[in-house]
Design a binder for these strands. Structure first.
Length: 804
RNA sequence: GCCGGAGUGGCGAAACUGGUAGACGCACAGGACUUAAAAUCCUGCGGUAGCAAUACUGUAACGGUUCGACUCCGUUCUCCGGCACCA
């Protein structure tokens, strides 16, 4: 190295200590400046420690936070720990230590690693979801949900992970496997606490219009909520007093119904079947039960079912139609029963073919060719449909719904795929659900004054796997009295899922020590919503859906005022290992940030993480690539030779200053950090070529670089004689007029092909430009004998001659 | 199957509302400095042909619109992500 002054170890340490002593990043909401709330998805502190993927998002947000600070904002930028949950509990069981101790150790390690990057966190606001002073308020929110009828108990067939020995929410099941451990999910019938997220379905869809989130994330949430519009229609069951209610999105196909299907779990079947048919049903149910969800979906191609021997009457045709039971109809959606139209639904078509059920087309394709080997599910003309014949099928939809409503056969209806949130976990390391089961009063919430309901103080516990929480085996904790009537009562022994604590932490940060509520109203109203939120795309249908649900509930009970928690969301892409695979412990390809920090220091790793590629895209870790940004920072350091400074800037340099400020300012706002760094590299390469370095250009460079590489920037700033932090200085301004070049290179095309270039003044008149172009030897050659048909002149950009 | 997103040098990538494709960085090659190496500095670097000026060709493939297409339209292929019997 050509210098000996740049020692990142001392510089990093010096500035991190200084920032901490000066409380540079602590905010109180009383500065009088406009606020800006920058938030990272807080990490789950695992035993494995930080990997290089974590700091990508943190660095981006830190750049934004420092940029906003320099632009005159009071910036709230907090960090904390999402520390309850299975991995820690499993780790603790394995190591035979208490999860509380394991959690404390993991947090210690995470905090140490994160601090090495020199992020601008206000550490005085740190939160920890496992702290009783925190989970007191998580429990409080649960009590409020309970009091408002949004938390309820239900005996239900739920997703059960045999390896984690707990029930899971639908959102935690991926491809029929446990999101955490990959074990195949089983079904288990358990009494569960559920949260009524479904009553917020409509608002969860509509309010996506209020936020600046990536479109794909919005779409994913919309699809997950899965709204569909159709009708509920009653079909009378022959020889009974009963009606069978079905949901359909295709009322236009009602005349084509040739059979009905009920889900095997449908309770109606128990009411109406007896004898031999009942036996057949039970046999079929056993067959279904023995299959996991995964196998059940694998049955896709080959549909199974049994006949019930019962018939319905089609309310529009008065024809008798048979009722079947088949597992391609789910109990959890709509009414658990469908009308089957094989001519216009592929699933019904497959089933009808297999069981020889008739297929009656009621919609004719516009080309008149009715397919016979598959269902026709597009729009066409109505046929075989009585008075509706001849009209377009999508117009018929509305007409038939109206008709059905007039005849009191059914009504218009909206259904969602979203299910209520299964909220109980049969594990130890989570917030205890603050409910007491009283012999007389039933489920009673624990009064607020008695919260937090702490986890029992035990040395060791085991996960039962029976569907009971380990807490159930602690009678001294379980047995209690009813807060309402004083009778004997038992505590709820299930705990909350990991997603509970993370569903409101962004509120706690605004007032982390508040003892009178989840945060004071002033703090909430001052800081919320979060202005920019950063995290991985994998949380779209879990965390981000749950948070929005809780937020809307908190809005309904007057705790928060804004409709959405996160005004702007940006996703970081994953960091892939050098071998092109996902970084994982088992593959041994994980890059530990500690090693990179030891070798290069905080500024280099920060810069590299941002330079790897576009922020929201997956990027591959490349050890060689780090050298490039390392060289860049050394080059910056070398520019600051006090013997080579001059006051004034030449015109060219001055233009580049303005151009660079413009580009970096714009790119930070747009999260285009890689191109911002590239612009600074161009700037530095230019300064490097100058014999004498203009002082004002160097100072501006430092300001631009400071959010990216804060340590080295502060050090050089101080060397320049500045006495207060560079982050207290103003972000440089640019003048668009001064970005303009006086001389420009104009490319000349002939018939759209690049042929020549000419250097002209930026202010050149069109007539003069034409002359200059025609004077070019090459242009003359290419025109030759041909005639100029058209001049296309794009000012400052190019000239194109059309010749014939 | 359905819904998103993406395909650009040896590699990571850039290109504003259609206007010089490959900025910036990595790797590589040549040179300077050095006893030598590392570091640093300078030069070159999509492909084909040519000593060269230069020409042709080139942004997954094919076709279209346009004076002009990585960018717009159509068809196809590949990869990634999400959903998946949701009636």
């Amino acid at each position: 190295m050509s210098n000996d002054g740049f020692n990142f170890e001392t510089i990093d340490k010096k500035w991190q200590e200084k920032w901490e002593n000066e409380k540079l990043y602590q905010v109180d909401g009383e500065s009088g400046k406009p606020k800006y709330y920058v938030l990272d998805m807080f990490p789950y502190p695992s035993a494995a420690g930080l990997h290089v993927g974590h700091p990508e998002g943190y660095t981006a947000n830190d750049i934004l936070a420092r940029f906003k600070m320099m632009n005159g904002y009071e910036v709230l930028h907090p960090m904390g720990w999402d520390a309850f949950g299975l991995p820690t509990e499993n780790y603790a069981l394995k190591m035979k230590i208490h999860p509380e101790i394991a959690t404390a150790e993991n947090i210690l390690n995470f905090r140490r690693q994160i601090k090495r990057f020199g992020f601008s966190y206000d550490w005085s606001r740190e939160v920890n979801t496992t702290d009783p002073e925190y989970y007191k308020w998580t429990q409080w929110i649960f009590v409020k949900l309970f009091e408002n009828g949004l938390a309820y108990e239900k005996q239900a067939l739920i997703n059960w992970c045999p390896s984690c020995k707990t029930g899971l929410a639908n959102e935690e099941v991926v491809d029929g496997k446990c999101d955490r451990c990959g074990a195949k999910i089983e079904r288990k019938n358990l009494k569960q606490w559920m949260l009524r997220i479904t009553s917020y379905a409509e608002r969860l869809i509509n309010d996506l219009d209020l936020v600046d989130w990536p479109e794909d994330v919005k779409t994913m949430q919309k699809n997950w909520i899965g709204k569909s519009t159709g009708a509920l229609v009653n079909f009378h069951v022959k020889n009974t007093q009963e009606d069978l209610e079905i949901f359909t999105t295709r009322p236009d196909t009602i005349f084509g119904v040739t059979y009905m299907v009920m889900s095997p779990e449908h309770p109606f079947l128990d009411k109406v079947l007896s004898g031999q048919k009942k036996k057949e049903l039970n046999k079929y149910r056993e067959l279904i039960q023995s299959k996991s969800d995964l196998e059940r979906t694998e049955l896709n191609k080959d549909k199974t079912g049994i006949s019930t021997g019962l018939f319905c009457i089609n309310p529009l045709t008065n024809e008798d139609i048979p009722i079947f039971v088949a597992d391609y109809v789910m109990m959890g959606y709509g009414t658990g029963a469908i009308m089957a139209v094989p001519a216009h639904d592929q699933r019904d078509f497959d089933f009808a073919k297999k069981y020889n059920i008739s297929i009656v087309p009621v919609i004719e394709p516009f080309d008149g060719i009715v397919p016979t080997e598959e269902a026709f599910d597009a729009v066409g003309t109505m046929i075989n449909s009585g008075e509706f014949n001849g009209i377009k099928s999508d117009d018929a939809k509305e007409k038939i719904i109206s008709f059905i409503e007039e005849q009191k056969l059914g009504k218009k209806s909206i259904q969602y795929k979203l299910r209520d949130w299964i909220f109980s976990r049969q594990r130890f390391w989570g917030e205890p659900i603050p409910i007491v089961h009283c012999e007389k009063c039933g489920a009673v919430a624990i009064p607020v004054e008695e919260l937090p309901l702490k986890l029992p103080d035990v040395e060791f516990y085991e996960t039962s796997g029976t569907g009971e929480s380990p807490l159930a085996k602690m009678p001294e904790w379980v047995n209690t009295t009813c807060p309402k009537c004083g009778s004997k009562a038992k505590r709820e022994t299930n705990t909350m899922p990991q997603w509970a604590g993370s569903s409101w932490y962004y509120i706690r940060y605004t007032d982390p020590k508040c003892t009178t509520g989840i945060a004071s109203k002033e703090a909430i109203n001052y800081w919320l919503p979060v202005d920019t939120y950063i995290g991985g795309r994998e949380h779209t249908n879990l965390h981000l859906l749950y948070v929005r649900f809780w937020h809307k509930f908190l809005q309904d009970i007057g705790v928060v005022d804004c409709p959405e928690p996160f005004a702007r969301l940006r996703n970081q892409g994953m960091v892939i290992a050098e071998d092109g695979r996902k970084m994982s412990k088992s593959l041994g390809n994980v890059v530990n940030p500690d090693e990179v920090l030891d070798k290069y220091g905080a500024d280099v790793i920060r810069l590299y993480e941002m330079f790897m590629g576009p922020f929201n895209q997956e990027s591959v870790w490349n050890t060689k690539g780090i050298e490039g940004v390392n060289r860049f920072l050394y080059k910056v350091w070398d520019l600051f030779d006090p013997k080579l400074l001059i006051k004034c800037c030449d015109d060219e340099t001055n233009r580049l200053v303005h151009k660079t400020v413009k580009k970096v300012t714009h790119d930070i706002e747009e999260f285009s950090f890689n191109t911002a760094i590239s612009a600074m590299m161009i700037f530095v390469n230019h300064l490097h070529k100058l014999k004498m370095k203009p002082k004002n250009a160097l100072k501006i460079l430092l300001c631009l670089l400071a959010p990216f590489a804060p340590h080295i920037s502060e050090e050089l700033w101080e060397n320049f004689g500045e006495t207060s932090s560079i982050f207290k200085s103003k972000w440089p301004e640019f003048n668009s007029e001064l970005c303009k070049d006086t001389e420009i290179v104009v490319p000349i095309q002939i018939n759209g092909k690049m042929r020549d270039k000419v250097i002209v003044s930026a202010e050149i008149k069109e007539s003069e430009l034409k002359e200059r172009v025609l004077a070019r030897e090459k242009v003359k050659v290419f025109i030759g004998e041909k005639k100029i048909v058209k001049w296309i002149i794009i000012p400052l950009r190019l000239v194109n001659l059309v010749v014939k």
